[in-house]
Design a protein around this nucleic acid. Structure first.
Length: 822
RNA sequence: GCCGAAGUGGCGGAACUGGCAGACGCGGCGGACUCAAAAUCCGUUGCCCGCAAGGGCGUGUGGGUUCGAGCCCCACCUUCGGCACCA
């Protein structure tokens, strides 16, 4: 039945044709509902969102994977009758464009515009069903005006504030970094070792939301456990006590935070962070003043990495702290294994029960006193730090608390301290406030004016946006390049009218991306950042898709923003993303694709060679979406063959003309089974590679009988089913063939539904085992009663060969298996 | 060190709820078509023994539970990811 001269599959022509068609029709544009005329409750809205790209100029396979995954899901949901919001935009501020401007000349704005144009063209070439009418770029004044407006709302509430603090500084990028942007003591962007600096910087008070960020994880419908774990670890909540030690021979007090108040009797020394403000006072005038000052100065010169990796060291201050629980004086040391940023910058050291304290005590010959031991008696012989982990341990040598189980001792000692005003329950967090200011040009200006008399004054809303000034020299100098724009910096104070200067730092780009998903809902609104009714209609995002690398960056920040905006009644929900899916990375030759490694496969080249449809199919066929995957140049040939087989099949079917399908032939049943598998995999299991395997199988089955004239009706039905099911993956070729079969507008056709009667088979194969080993198979009608199955199993020659005498018992799983035990 | 995920043919992977291990694809092998090649189509492809019928082994390792384990439990090994002076 092959036509004598089969027209060749020409993806370039077909894809261009349909892309132009859909674009002209605004096929995937989804206007906001008219809230005045109908109830929003009757509309089934679904917001599908993928993390927005940084426009580096090149779409890469990670993008192709991410957006194709979202696209398939979008198509299926749309065809199920959902109104799906599926927008796209660009995270356009940032160092890449600025560095390109420095290296190659040109303005970051022009470079960014060029990159956006190029990445947009590539995205359109992939044929994704995106609502382009909502396109947003975070570097446009129409967008960043509202980023500034939101910053001011945070500022009003005291959630954006400025203070001097030790911060992480990247010497290469010449800017500060948020804690989340430091990986192993190195800059997340460029890998340079970060330095510590004391600077006055802008922060968001994310620590105020630490508990809510933890507790409200319960509101999330489906997030990967590993992302939640990473966020929990990052927030690092730990419960313990704040205990006040007095300085011997003075009125001075030194509070500490500890998670182990039960070990208070084992505190044999006391340690201050080198940055601790009281060090000077404690040592003033003594023989220890100079060596301690030396040590502090020396520490300041150490890099963060060096400080963390070197052996612990420190210096004695000559002073003592009084243990509140027994009045015992213990020596106060200064050591840089104690961090000023956590707790109170001071610790009580319990060397018997803390490994770090133990190492320090060993080195300097300080007393090690065990106060917790296993309940069954006998102390561990080993002199190393014995860290209590279980509830079975009891306090020893701890005064009136001796004999209590460790958890009870913890409570009892805390209560004892609390009664005497010497301590109280306390909670510590690892999370630090989000350092948001950057000393770079290409970012959102912070809308603040500094006035000698009024301090930090917000720019009034009606003066927004504070436009990024034009400058010639983007080179980072350790302070913001904006400072050079003298005419821009000099301004008047909005409060007193006197001379004032603009804030010259720009915002971390993660601020821009902490609310973009809200803007999409109402992207063209020039009166407000968004209309709450519109945002509340679309959000929370029903399905968010992106890389796991944002677990403690974007995903944490966006949750924080949403909570704040809900608190100030701009949003009606607490969590931005109900369901999160984190996709794996794509590797080639065992490494992440990168230009320096020369292992990049560009989507452009793949589209050029195979077409977008084939690339879309292959990228999802490679393996489970959540796992890392290895790109194979040969592998894509398989999906190219699949498309080609469908192409030739459908053309042949079209040439034969319409035929009625019989009610329930084998191929009809196969088609229904495929509908069932594909739908279940995508919608229930959120699995995208096995549906393609199911389509391969269906097409293979069609090929087996396609030339048999008696099967013509079944072949046509199965072919149309295959086209309908492959449409979300390969929309162009599916649409083209659908049209050639005399139909139209496949992309808006209802998603097929399997007929359960046709999915079930009427004969089933029963596996017969003897002692759990496969011995025979039986073909029986579905629903055959157990006794009959056993009878038939025992009658089998192959079974009898392995059964000697009477079986001890038989196990039957209806319609599946019989196991004969002898 | 702590936390998490994962180990299945030559390769990517499938096996959803404890019930036929290896679906589907890549690669390999054989055949058809062709002067030939490519493309295409058909068949075959876990390992071992056997002419065959058939049998044995097999999901990182060792044990356990079960009529039955890739899946559950215990211990271990390896790989990947995250966190890591957080008191």
């Amino acid at each position: 039945m092959e036509p004598s001269e089969t027209e060749r599959y020409d993806p370039a022509a077909i894809e261009a044709k349909w892309q132009a068609f859909w674009s002209a029709e605004d096929a995937f544009v989804v206007p906001n509902p008219d809230f005045g005329s109908r109830s929003t409750a009757e509309l089934q809205s679904t917001y599908v969102l993928e993390m927005l790209p940084y426009p580096s100029g090149e779409l890469h396979m990670g993008h192709v994977f991410n957006y194709t995954l979202g696209d398939v899901f979008t198509h299926v949901r749309r065809r199920q009758g959902h109104t799906v919001l599926r927008p796209m935009g660009y995270d356009a501020f940032g160092l890449n464009a600025e560095n390109a401007a420095i290296n190659e000349g040109g303005h970051p704005r022009e470079i960014t515009a060029r990159n956006i144009e190029s990445i947009r063209r590539q995205m359109k070439r992939m044929g994704w069903a995106i609502d382009w009418s909502r396109e947003v770029s975070t570097a446009e004044p129409e967008y960043y005006r509202w980023t500034q407006w939101l910053f001011l709302r945070f500022f009003e509430r005291g959630l954006a504030y400025r203070r001097e603090a030790p911060v992480k500084w990247c010497p290469k990028d010449q800017t500060v970094l948020a804690n989340e942007q430091v990986i192993d003591g190195r800059c997340e962007r460029c890998g340079t070792e970060v330095e510590a600096r004391n600077l006055t910087q802008w922060f968001f008070k994310i620590t105020d939301y630490a508990d809510q960020l933890l507790d409200e994880m319960d509101l999330l419908e489906s997030w990967p456990e590993r992302v939640l774990t990473m966020q929990r670890n990052w927030i690092g909540r730990s419960e313990g006590a704040r205990v006040t030690f007095k300085v011997e021979g003075s009125d001075g007090e030194l509070p500490v935070f500890t998670t182990r108040p039960d070990t208070l009797f084992g505190a044999t020394f006391f340690v201050l962070a080198p940055e601790h403000p009281l060090i000077g006072t404690l040592t003033a005038g003594s023989e220890y003043e100079a060596p301690v000052a030396d040590y502090v100065r020396h520490t300041a010169g150490r890099s963060a990495v060096e400080r963390e990796t070197k052996e612990k060291d420190g210096v004695f201050t000559g002073r003592h702290a009084v243990n509140p629980v027994n009045g015992e004086p213990i020596p106060i040391w200064v050591a840089d294994y104690v961090l000023m940023e956590y707790g109170t910058g001071a610790i009580m050291a319990v060397p018997a029960h803390d490994e770090r304290d133990h190492a320090f005590a060993e080195k300097y010959g300080l007393e090690i006193r065990q106060v917790v031991a296993p309940a069954e008696g006998g102390r561990p012989a080993d002199a190393g730090a014995f860290v209590a982990h279980t509830d079975d341990e009891v306090l020893v040598d701890s005064g009136e608390f001796t004999g209590l189980a460790a958890p009870a001792g913890k409570k009892a000692i805390t209560a004892w301290l609390d009664e005497r005003g010497l301590g109280e329950e306390a909670i510590g967090y690892r999370l630090r406030d989000w350092l948001l200011s950057r000393q770079r040009y290409w970012g959102c200006p912070i809308p603040i004016v500094h006035c000698e008399t009024c301090g930090s004054v917000p720019v009034p809303d009606e003066q927004l946006p504070v436009l990024l000034p034009e400058i010639d020299d983007y080179l980072p100098k350790g302070k913001s390049p904006l400072a050079a724009a003298e005419g821009w910096v000099a301004t008047t104070c909005p409060s007193c009218g006197g001379a004032a200067r603009r804030e010259t730092d720009t915002m971390d780009t993660f601020v821009d991306s902490s609310w973009y998903f809200l803007r999409y809902a109402d992207a063209r609104n020039d009166e407000a950042a968004w209309d709450q009714q519109v945002v509340d209609y679309w959000l929370p995002v029903k399905q968010y898709i992106g890389g796991v690398e944002h677990a403690v960056l974007h995903l944490l920040y966006a949750r924080f923003f949403t909570k704040v905006l809900n608190d100030i009644e701009l949003l009606g929900f607490r969590e931005p993303f109900s369901r999160l899916f984190t996709q794996g990375m794509i590797y080639r030759h065992g490494a992440k694709m990168s230009k320096t490694k020369g292992n990049v496969v560009s989507p452009d080249a793949a589209v050029e060679r195979y077409g977008a449809d084939v690339l879309r199919l292959y990228i999802l066929y490679m393996g489970p979406a959540e796992q890392d995957k290895e790109w194979s140049d040969d592998g894509i040939e398989g999906t190219a063959r699949l498309v080609d087989r469908i192409w030739r099949l459908a053309l042949a079917v079209a040439q034969r003309g319409p035929v009625d399908a019989p009610a329930g032939g084998e191929l009809i049943r196969a088609a229904h089974r495929t509908i069932d598998r594909v739908s279940d995999d995508i919608l229930r299991r959120f699995q995208f590679h096995t549906p393609i395997a199911a389509l391969f199988e269906l097409v293979n089955e069609i090929y087996r009988v396609k030339d048999d004239p008696a099967s013509a009706g079944e072949v046509r039905f199965a072919t149309e089913t295959a086209l309908s099911l492959i449409q979300p993956y390969a929309p162009h070729v599916a649409e083209e063939l659908w049209e050639r079969l005399g139909n139209s507008r496949l992309w808006e056709l209802p998603w097929p539904e399997a007929n359960p009667a046709l999915v079930a088979t009427d004969t089933v194969e029963i596996v017969v085992q003897v002692n759990g080993k496969l011995r025979d198979r039986l073909q029986v009608p579905a629903g055959t009663p157990e006794e009959e199955l056993v009878e038939r199993a025992l009658a089998s020659e192959r079974v009898r060969a392995h059964v000697d005498g009477e079986p001890r018992r038989t196990v039957v799983v209806p319609d599946r298996l019989v196991n004969v035990v002898v």
